[in-house]
Design a protein around this nucleic acid. Structure first.
Length: 1063
DNA sequence: ATGTGCCTTCTTTTT
DNA sequence: GAAGGCACAT
């Protein structure tokens, strides 16, 4: 059956090394579909292993044609009847691959053959032309330059073929002795019988090669230049024949037939050595100009570097545009992603381009059809007018071409910058990558309409640290009747200078601090301000909100709330000159920092640089280490780039304020009162800054909890907290001890832990939560079983039947009814533990959120799925029965080549699975989409949407949840011990304490007897911290109570193992 | 420039 | 066991 297809001819397989991986082959086919390309792997030189794989995988369907799926066929030369051999003349071309020097002469080399010895190379060179040489890495090679190659072509047996050396050599070495040749030389000598393709070293542009009448007996075809599946079809051959080996053969054999309808090509001008010239001098010469200039550069007068075009000019015996008798039409192409990139003014590999590419692929068709013949209005509808205009121009050749020369790439441009700027409004950019719901809005002015089509819900931020609103004296949040307990009130009203407030978990820390700030603001003189310092932007933002709520925007203006770094940055910006820093300095990005490190230690390997940066970071945070030299070197590099890193901000501010009296006096005059949150997390530099600020009657209020100091590893030093009274003479200390968060027994349990089981020294915390909580200890066989247990418990609690009231025998504050998902958190010591948990939650369909994880909707693949579902919304399909989310997603997965392809991309491989699990949970497409799109913003940890939170213990600080699971309560994990790493048991203990004190009503401490970590499975012992809790507070869950059937269904291996262990 | 294979490493993390 | 870095190949 004659058909039209675009063939990417692989004279060998570039994928031959991937024989063990089926994935790669499938990947190849999938891309072939997306591109609209038929992959034709031909030649004896196809790697035998690859052939074997194809044969094994695909049912052979005769005569060298193996069928994979109906759409993709692969003609393979193995198994071709011997009579077919030696009858096709492929003429393939390539660019200069290297430049080598020998005997003082520089020669451009088009092909390189690796050989066992220089002798062999020379012998072969004598036989074939070319040049034996030793590469810089010591390997003997044979280099063939264009002239040699062409001579070989012209002199060779008409029935012979030549194989490109770079194809042959790896094949030979892969075969080794099994090839039947004793030496590569013998092998090479035998080539004339088998050789298949030839590289002339001429331009890759057939139009130019047609100018050589000596090539008339050859058929010019395009060889694949695809280095990876997604580069398929950058060059291709258009066939109108049978899709079979014999079909292709006939097409090539009979120049008169239309079998070979033409070729698709790059713009050859893009090549680095197209024209002649001097890169340094900026001279780019057409070969004719070179001849006029007698081969010399008009700028420097030295001989120019001669490019491939010159060679064509030299050999051509026909004028430009001439057609040989086997001439076939050709199209010059630009890959779609480059067209889109040019339209958007961004790189072809950018996310924007990727997103638009998939959209087009889904809406219009495969890449070649988009490039060659799809209706432009359909392209415009999806990608905007600019892209469709770009495609039109490429089709008609209306592009600006600047040929490459002397190693400089040529530049092919579709739009001038001016045009692009002028037309920008017409591009349907979907700026932030949000999918367009508006398929009927053809000329949609981009961002706005696209955005409007999306439900963009602002999420309500519920503050996590919301103490005492349940049980403490109820009062409206007013300035006059703040709901403060006695201790809190005393702290707020304390009139002395410095004050340290020790505030345990759930004692209303932020609440108290905010009120003290408000109080101070009310007393502020006209030209004075209050400074409130936090560690994180999030904390600063929350504090600002709460202050604003209490005292309104006017007073709010006299309170400066910011992080340490924000404050220092402000100081430095205002006093750049005094600080000796250029006024226009930037904050160093991660890249800036590594660049500075690279300049500081140019020879050091990256790992060493990273290590140095770490040491420097610690040293600058005030931790021990003698790295001063490195610090100075690194800082000098930062300074040279006119950037300040985060540590610099603090250091430079401290330096300025300590030496410049005017600056410090101004700051002290402005900020008479300084308040610091989370004071236990302070480091040396921050402490130094505070010491500077707090003088001449400026007062400092610090609040924090030494039992929650968990950031020692990054330089925080709890001793600053402990030595507060010494550092700031005259300071008072107050303690907030009424806990409004946790049930009494949970509070007691956490007290046992922090006091190392020594009940007497537990922090004095009085429970004001009028309910009884429950502490459950549970041990499973493995981490998988642990995850299943957690999910199971969670399901029970969400179920609505109040297990809580049954278990505790008490029904208290009315919140013991069925929980919602936002009421749960699962905490763990290391992020690596999230894996099994995520899997278990996915299986169960429970909505969850892993802290710090990118929201689903940010993945291009998910965007694509969402766009598809919007476009194929039920409304549009009439009263389609198909409102079912899972079914719609299934259709997407089947119909869209994008989905099929991305599924193979292992980076996002799990995404479709995840989507499907989510879809199964939603009745309609609409609710499914809402669910996905709602989670646009990051910072999921404190946004209490209705999902279970999966967090590290560190990330849980400051949050609270009715039900908390702490997974992996095993010795070695809680506390975390790693061989060769320093170990701070006290800090680990505090960390566990932080985790425990997040729980309001229920706390589960789970562990696994066997755990796989770092690829090793080890037997574990229970956490010693758990042992510090008095037994009478613990409840042990019995495994037998588990729903065996259900558990076995969802987790077959480990769970059964758990159940069937000898009791 | 881009793939590939081998090696190392593998807490926690804000600005 | 997975991921990232690095050296090396084309």
């Amino acid at each position: 059956m004659v058909m039209k297809y675009y063939a990417d001819l692989h004279i060998h397989s570039k994928y031959s090394r991937a024989t063990s991986s089926q994935l790669d082959l499938e990947h190849l086919w999938l891309w072939a579909q997306i591109k609209g390309i038929t992959v034709v792997a031909t030649g004896d030189c196809v790697h035998p292993g690859w052939l074997a794989e194809i044969k094994q995988k695909l049912a052979p369907c005769g005569n060298g044609l193996f069928e994979l799926k109906p759409e993709y066929c692969c003609a393979v030369a193995a198994g071709i009847p011997p009579s077919c051999k030696g009858t096709v003349r492929f003429l393939l071309s390539t660019e200069i691959s290297s430049i080598y020097k020998r005997d003082g002469a520089v020669r451009k080399v088009h092909n390189v053959v690796y050989l066992p010895s220089l002798d062999a190379a020379d012998k072969l060179a004598a036989k074939l032309g070319g040049m034996g040489n030793i590469r810089s890495d010591g390997r003997p090679i044979l280099g063939l330059d264009s002239r040699d190659l062409l001579d070989i072509v012209l002199s060779c047996d008409p029935d012979a073929f030549l194989i490109p050396a770079h194809v042959w050599t790896p094949w030979f070495s892969a075969l080794g002795s099994k090839s039947g040749f004793d030496s590569i030389e013998e092998c090479f000598g035998d080539l004339t019988r088998y050789v298949y393709a030839l590289e002339t070293g001429l331009s890759s542009d057939p139009a130019m090669n047609w100018r050589l009448s000596s090539l008339d007996s050859f058929v010019l075809v395009s060889n694949s230049d695809a280095h990876s599946p997604n580069k398929l079809g950058r060059e291709a051959n258009i066939f109108e024949t049978d899709l079979s080996y014999c079909g292709i053969l006939d097409a090539l054999r009979n120049p008169g037939s239309r079998g070979l309808a033409g070729t698709l090509e790059f713009f050859p001008e893009e090549g680095k050595y197209h024209f002649d010239g001097h890169r340094k001098c900026g001279t780019r010469l057409h070969p004719r100009e070179t001849i006029k200039n007698k081969g010399l550069c008009p700028v420097c007068g030295k001989p120019v570097t001669v490019g491939v075009m010159a060679r064509v000019e030299e050999l051509a015996d026909r004028p430009d545009g001439a057609k040989g008798k086997r001439w076939r039409p050709y199209h010059s192409m630009i890959p779609l992603s480059e067209i889109i990139g040019d339209c958007l003014g961004v790189g072809p590999a950018s996310q924007k381009v990727e997103s638009l590419y998939w959209r087009l692929a889904g809406a219009v068709g495969n890449e070649l059809s988009i490039l060659l013949d799809a209706p432009l209005d359909r392209i415009e509808k999806t990608a905007g007018a600019l892209v469709s205009e770009g495609v039109r121009r490429v089709r008609s050749g209306e592009v600006s071409v600047k040929a490459g020369y002397d190693g400089e790439y040529g530049i092919i441009k579709i739009f001038s910058d001016k045009e692009r700027a002028g037309k920008k409004g017409q591009v349907n950019l979907f700026g932030d990558g949000a999918p367009a719901g508006a398929s009927q809005a053809p000329k949609a002015d981009s961002e706005d309409s696209a955005a409007a089509a999306l439900p963009r819900h602002k999420k309500k931020v519920r503050t996590a640290d919301s103490p005492h609103n349940q049980n403490a004296a109820p009062a409206s949040a007013g300035t006059h009747a703040p709901n403060l307990n006695k201790a809190q009130l005393a702290a707020v009203n304390y009139g002395g200078s410095h004050l340290l407030i020790i505030a345990g978990p759930g004692t209303g820390k932020t609440h108290t601090l905010v009120h003290r700030i408000v109080k101070a603001a009310a007393r502020c003189a006209a030209n004075e301000k209050i400074l409130a310092v936090t560690f994180t932007n999030k904390a600063a933002e929350e504090m600002r909100e709460r202050i604003c709520k209490l005292i309104g925007p006017e007073l709010h203006a006299i309170v400066t709330v910011g992080t340490f770094h924000q404050f220092c940055l402000g100081i430095l910006r205002a006093n750049a000159a005094e600080a000796g820093i250029p006024a226009d300095f930037r904050i160093a990005s991660d890249d800036d920092c590594s660049a500075a490190a690279a300049r500081a230690w140019p020879t050091a390997p990256a790992a060493e640089r990273r290590a140095k940066l770490e040491v420097i970071g610690r040293a600058r945070a005030g931790m021990p280490g003698e790295a001063q030299e490195d610090v100075d070197l690194y800082k000098a590099q930062l300074r040279a780039a006119n950037v300040l890193d985060f540590d610099d901000l603090l250091e430079e501010a401290v330096r300025l304020l300590s030496k410049n009296a005017m600056a410090i006096n101004q700051v002290r005059a402005t900020y008479r009162s300084v308040l610091v949150d989370e004071f236990q997390d302070i480091n040396a530099a921050q402490h130094a800054l505070l010491t500077l600020l707090v003088k001449d009657g400026v007062s400092l209020t610090a609040i924090g909890d030494p039992n929650q100091a968990i950031y020692g590893f990054r330089g925080s030093d709890i001793r600053f907290f402990e030595q507060f009274e010494a550092s700031f003479p005259g300071a008072a200390t107050m303690v907030l001890s009424e806990n409004y968060r946790s049930a009494a027994n949970l509070l007691e349990a956490s007290g046992h832990v922090i006091a190392s089981g020594n009940t007497d020294s537990a922090p004095l915390l009085v429970a004001r939560f009028l309910g009884n909580g429950r502490l459950t200890i549970h041990e499973t066989a493995t981490e998988k079983a642990e995850a299943e247990y957690i999910v199971h418990q969670l399901e029970k609690l969400v179920g609505g039947t109040s297990m809580f009231s049954h278990d505790s025998g008490r029904l208290d504050s009315g919140d013991t009814d069925g929980k919602s998902f936002g009421d749960f958190a699962v905490l763990y010591r290391t992020n690596a533990q999230s894996g099994p948990l995520v899997e278990a939650f996915e299986r169960s369909g429970i909505p969850f959120q892993v802290s710090g994880e990118k929201p689903l909707a940010q993945y291009p693949f998910v965007k694509e799925a969402v766009a598809y579902l919007l476009e194929h919304a039920p409304g549009e399909l009439g009263e389609s029965s198909d409102t079912d989310a899972a079914a719609a997603l299934g259709r997407f997965a089947q119909e869209s080549p994008v989905a099929a392809m991305l599924e193979k991309d292992d980076r996002v491989g799990g995404l479709l699975d995840r989507l499907q699990h989510i879809a199964a949970f939603h009745a309609s497409v609409q609710s499914f989409l809402d669910y996905i799109l709602l989670q646009q913003k990051e910072e999921p940890a404190d946004i209490r949407v209705e999902r279970v939170s999966l967090l590290t213990l560190h990330a849980s600080k400051g949050l609270e949840f009715p039900v908390v699971f702490i997974a992996g309560c095993e010795d070695g994990l809680v506390p975390l011990k790693r061989e060769g790493k320093h170990f701070d048991p006290a800090e680990e203990r505090r960390l566990f304490y932080v985790g425990m004190t997040r729980a309001k009503e229920r706390l589960y401490l789970t562990s696994a007897r066997r755990r796989t970590m770092y690829g090793k499975t080890i037997d574990t012992r229970p956490s010693p911290f758990v042992a510090d809790i008095k037994e009478e507070l613990k409840t042990y869950e019995k495994t037998a109570a588990m729903n065996v059937k259900k558990a076995a269904e969802s987790e077959q291996t480990d769970f059964l193992g758990d159940l069937f262990l000898p009791q």
